[in-house]
Simulated scan of single mutants.
Amino acid sequence: MERQSYTLPGLPDWHRCAVMGILNVTPDSFSDGGKWLDPGLAVEHGLALAAQGADIVDVGGESTRPGARRVPAEEELARVLPVVRGPAREGVLVSIDTMRAEVAEAAVEDGARIVNDVSGGRADGRMAKAVARSGVPFVVMHWRGQSRAMDDLADYRDVVAEVAAEVVCQMDAVVSAGVDPAQVIVDPGLGFAKGRRDDWSLLAALDAWRALGRPLLVGPSRKRFLGELLADPVTGEPRSARDRDAATAATAVLAAAQGAWAVRVHEVRATAAAVRVEAAIRSYRATAGQVSRESGSTRRSLSPVP
């Protein structure tokens, strides 16, 4: 599939699927909670993610796992701001993962260059105007409600059509509030108010999102649907979150092949290699197609070796 090119304010064009490395500074995230609470260690990890091939480091201070409770804004600010500043000062492209306008504004002031809002602007009515003022790219993820109740909201007749339609409504809302359409990145929200079959259906139809005309961010990392796919054949126990990275990398490269602008992952190194392989194959296919067109043939014939 031919890759669409997008111009996003303040961001480079990587000419391939970008890799967003996850840096959770939370005690309760589902696979790495508590690991990077110390700001110094978190900054070191952010720099390590960049060294391993992350194009973007996504810093979040509030867990959005199913059932998670919200934290006070002051606590979220205290967690994320030192961790945004450190990598940003070293030239790392940082995004802020938050549903709060005040956190987004403070993080952008401290060097974040993307706002990644899992609620797509719905959790905080001030978010869209804050993003509009900042001018930075804004991730609008499909969202039906807060984490504590999301599993009860996974009710679809046609998940691909309904999720896309709801994201369009969210896009329209933030644009009406002043966000430039050129700032918008869309995300189908794998695992958020989705059942296992819903996630697979969305992944199988990512190319349909090209019709929205906006870059697509996909976040499959260590998600429940992968753990269930890889469940122990005897006990039926889902594979643990930290043992889903190979499946995550496979999912990420399939997303890249369907035109995803970026994939969001915990373990960067394997995914960074995988998307570069996909980009190389895409490039060679394009070159071969050009050669075929110039030679007036759509297929090269091979003669038997004597």
Rank of each mutant, 00 (worst) to 15 (best):
S134P: 02
I96Q: 14
G135C: 08
S95W: 07
N116H: 07
V94W: 14
V115I: 13
R113K: 14
E102R: 14
V94S: 12
E105A: 15
T98Y: 15
V94E: 12
S119Y: 08
A123S: 09
G135P: 02
E105M: 11
G111L: 07
V115K: 12
L93T: 11
V118W: 02
V94D: 13
V115E: 05
A101Q: 12
D117C: 08
G125V: 05
D97E: 09
T98C: 13
R126W: 01
A130E: 05
A106H: 15
V108F: 14
V118Q: 08
R126E: 04
G111K: 07
G135F: 10
S134F: 00
V115Q: 07
E105Q: 15
G135T: 04
S119E: 02
K129M: 01
G135N: 10
M127F: 06
V131I: 13
L93S: 08
G135S: 08
K129L: 04
S95H: 13
G135E: 06
M127W: 02
R126Q: 04
A128N: 01
V131W: 12
A106T: 10
I114E: 12
A104Y: 14
T98S: 15
K129G: 03
E105S: 15
R126D: 03
V131N: 06
A123F: 02
S95M: 10
R126F: 01
I96Y: 15
N116A: 01
T98R: 15
E102Q: 14
S95K: 13
G111S: 09
V118E: 01
D124S: 10
G125M: 01
